[in-house]
Design a protein around this nucleic acid. Structure first.
Lengths: 282, 282
DNA sequence: AGAAAAAATGAAAGTTTATTTCATAATTGT
DNA sequence: ACAATTATGAAATAAACTTTCATTTTTTCT
């Protein structure tokens, strides 16, 4: 854990003198990393040994080691802040903000994803007779992307972004089929119904959706992604990126599970596209 | 600048002894930050003053200060390395790797994007009579996403992922129309033709593609995104994420340019979806 | 409340670590 | 090959950090 956060957390477990040191450090950590133990002690109006004890209390070897930790905290502290786009932002500003919040969201998504669920999902996908990807609106894009990826794997795969087609497909599903339902909120009624129908018809339902949502309850496996409050202007942005990354992960897991020969085949698929392209050396 | 990079950069300006120190530091910077000047000198087989001089040469106050810089480099230096997925990776490993390389790619994309082109693109998009998004394969997903976003803006917008439809649409375009052509490589023949046709028919062509590619040459504005060598298993992964983020940026720029009333309207669009969702408090 | 125990604190001594000085060695240019 | 410059390390010095121990403060127990 970041040592600055740690200090802030344990603030009330400190003794009076330790508290003084903590206050000085928290108020200007940037100065502290360049200060000697004597300088810091003086600034906090306490003695040098107290500073030293303070450092050890925070599981560092001593003052120099503490400064090292502090320096690192400052370096990577809040690397990607989820800053909101403001009305008067220049192109430069909103570009930076959107990139940063997208990255912040990915970081969050990474931490929230449960790899054992991913592993199970890959298991199930590799054994599927048929894979269907369903999504609506922004999530339809994710499903569309999944189709693109899995289509290359030469497995029976379909994608629908139309409620009726999804329903029909769900009703026709059977044991061995896998239905991947994508919904950011997990509250889109028709998709919840589709998941339910698929499940009733013995398909395995994987949900890429919010944990604990109505949709999640209908799924055999839930791949849930936490995301920060939306920076968006009334449209889903970063969440969709995290979902797409998850699709990449599933696709990658799939190819790894299938082994070397399978990947050679993928290369062939890629090469087959060559004739449709302009040559690189012209 | 990151001190590790700095050392690597200036490697050949060092004297023989300094070079020895540099090598030790570069080979295991993590050890060095916990080593005393004596320990480092010994490991590099040189004297302590040489280490000290080395530190000063790199614009630090001395060895302890140097260690501070080094610690910071380690903390935020190469935060997201573009590590390749390996055949024997566990789900945990490939998940982490894919997230990291996606983020590394976004970072790269951010740096490579030219905001003045973005600004011009937003200008043109806000003034368009009709906007078309064209892409094929993985880029079709990006175009699809763009449709979703711009559709909410209540502007005439279409999206095609079919070569013939794209051609017909391009041929029918006219002055005031904007055609956004998306292709990672910029070498897909049919898309280059479509761009060319659209341009001939007086549409403004914006390319989201590689700089200097055949497609880029046909475009009025090129939004080019650098990306690291593909970590993928024969399919585009991270590049697509950067393209989608660019779409977010264009859409955001669009809404900002259109002003407050316009965004109120967006909120209405969002609210209109509510009845199709399960209530949050049930 | 008051005494004893425990904990916290700082002065001073001790230790480690880093820096400077200066003499010597290596390198460079002529 | 020689002088000038630069690079290097041994030793001395200085600075910084840690330990010890006595004192003060706080807490606990009766």
């Amino acid at each position: 854990m970041n040592i600055l956060e740690k200090i802030a957390n344990e603030l009330d477990t400190f003794s009076k003198s330790e508290r003084k040191v903590a206050d000085v450090i928290l108020s200007s950590p940037g100065t502290v990393i360049h200060a000697s133990i004597a300088a810091l002690a003086k600034q906090a109006n306490i003695s040098e040994p107290t500073v030293n004890r303070f450092c050890r209390r925070l599981d560092t070897k001593g003052y120099p080691d503490f400064k090292l930790h502090l320096a690192q905290s400052l370096a990577n502290g809040t690397p990607y802040v989820n800053r909101h786009v403001d009305e008067n932002d220049s192109a430069d500003e909103y570009t930076t903000k959107i990139f940063e919040s997208t990255m912040a969201n990915l970081e969050l998504a990474r931490r929230s994803l449960d790899t054992s669920s991913i592993n199970r999902s890959v298991d199930i996908l590799t054994q599927a007779n048929k894979i269907s990807f369903f999504g609506l609106g922004a999530s339809a894009v994710v499903a569309h992307d999944a189709l693109n990826k899995f289509f290359r794997f030469n497995v029976p795969v379909v994608y629908f972004d139309d409620i009726l087609m999804q329903r029909m497909s769900a009703i026709n599903s059977r044991q061995g089929d896998v239905v991947v339902v994508i919904s950011h909120t997990g509250r889109t009624k028709s998709l919840v119904e589709v998941a339910s129908l698929a499940k009733e018809n013995d398909a395995t339902v994987i949900g890429i959706t919010a944990a604990g949502s109505p949709l999640a309850k209908e799924c055999n496996i839930v791949l849930s992604i936490d995301d920060a409050e939306d920076t968006d202007l009334y449209m889903p942005m970063a969440s969709r990126i995290a979902q797409l990354t998850l699709i990449d992960i599933l696709a990658t897991g799939f190819t790894l599970r299938r082994g070397t020969k399978f990947r050679d085949n993928l290369k062939k698929v890629k090469d087959s596209l060559r004739s449709s392209r302009f040559d690189r050396k012209e």
